[in-house]
Simulated assay, not measured.
Amino acid sequence: MTPKDAILGFAVAFLVAVVMTPVTARVARVVGAIDRPKDRGLAAGGTPLLGGLAMLAGILVSAAFYLHSTPRTEDRVHGILWGAVVIAVVGALDDRFELHPAAKLAGQIVAAVIPVHAGVEVVNITLPFVGALQFHSLGSVLTVVGLVAVMNVVNLSDGIDGLAAGVCAIAATVFAIIAFDLERRHAGVLAALTAGAALGFLVHNFHPASVFMGDCGSNLLGLMLGCIAVEGAVKTQAVLALVFPLLVLAVPFLDTTFVVLKRMKYGRPVWQADANHLHHRFNRIGFSQRRSVLYLYAWTMTLGAFAVALRFVPYSDNHGHFNTGWSLVMAALGLVVLAASVYLVVVLEILKVKRLVWMRHASGHDEAAVDAEVEQALATGEFPAVRLD
């Protein structure tokens, strides 16, 4: 397999997803898989789900033409694709019948076990200055846990038009670049197919969305990205193998971590949905859906570009010796990424909250009251939406 296979596979997956998404939307309306209005949601409700089935079709059709596995990778590739089918079916059932959280978790575990049983497993990782860390028999269990975690991270981040599809498309594109450089060509093509399918669906899902991917799609993308990360980077001997997935998926990981910790802090079930995700908070300070999602796209691109730079910039010989000039370049890039992250989280959220609260107290300029209200808003993640009219 070559980069040409990845590019053609991307294109076919994109076209199939574009064509099939309206079809799955009609099917969703017929079977009653419709998103209902929710207090926590940003959508008006009444939008068909099951868009993930269109992405699955794009991945499978494209894989049939452009994913040429070798005897060494055939079982793992088939395991990933069968796992994708299983999780898409489980997600579709959840979209239609709202499965109990335990039943949905069981379905995720089954879908994750399929590729792991086929060999998609992390048996060791190479840490900087430490060397290889062996997992032995725990490798399969840890991999299943990791895949289920990624599925839920993507699922929890899917709360605004175009967000999950766009972020996952960016992430898959970055994984494809890194996987090909690491000579993990099957993972590179899988990543390209996933990116194409996600972008094809995004044509219909960008605000105002005519269809949602539902749990069917978010779990599918989570499983695909998790398996691609294992096959494309984590399973190699690259020193920074574990860093690549963490950087590329940092936005949904950070968002989910924040939300879960907040729920734990206030004694809420971690699986119980609320309106404390980044996109909800941006909406409450006056950002439109499009502006919110474009900022999050930009953040993901920044992190993805840094992950690519870590792989291609020759700042180290991978034996503990660093090139001063290129190391300074990487440090500068790291500062840019850090500044972008701080800008997004602090300037766009915390400082704007304080400015808006200050406006509410403008008549008395009571700074202590402003600080108290801001502290409460940041602690609970709840503050009144800003009306620009």
Rank of each mutant, 00 (worst) to 15 (best):
G214E: 07
F253H: 09
F253S: 12
P269Y: 08
D274V: 05
P245L: 02
A233C: 13
H204V: 10
M264Q: 13
Y266G: 07
P208S: 06
A250V: 13
V260L: 15
L247V: 01
L242Y: 02
L261H: 11
A238R: 11
K262H: 13
Y266F: 15
K235G: 14
V248M: 10
Y266P: 00
T236Q: 01
L202K: 10
G226T: 06
D255V: 08
H204Y: 11
V260C: 07
F244S: 05
H207Q: 13
A209E: 12
A241Q: 03
L202G: 04
A275L: 02
C216N: 13
L220H: 05
L249E: 06
Q272P: 00
K265T: 14
L247W: 01
L247F: 10
S218G: 11
V270T: 14
S210Q: 14
A273N: 08
A250N: 08
F212D: 09
P269T: 06
G267F: 11
F244Q: 00
P245F: 00
G232N: 01
N276G: 15
P269A: 08
H207D: 13
H204D: 05
V259K: 05
N276V: 12
V260G: 05
V270F: 15
L223F: 09
A209D: 12
S210Y: 09
T256D: 00
A273K: 13
G222F: 03
P252H: 05
G232L: 04
F206D: 04
V251F: 03
P245C: 04
C216M: 12
W271S: 13
G200K: 03
L261I: 12
L225Q: 02
L225K: 01
V243K: 00
N276R: 14
V251N: 09
L202R: 08
L220C: 10
C227L: 03
M264S: 11
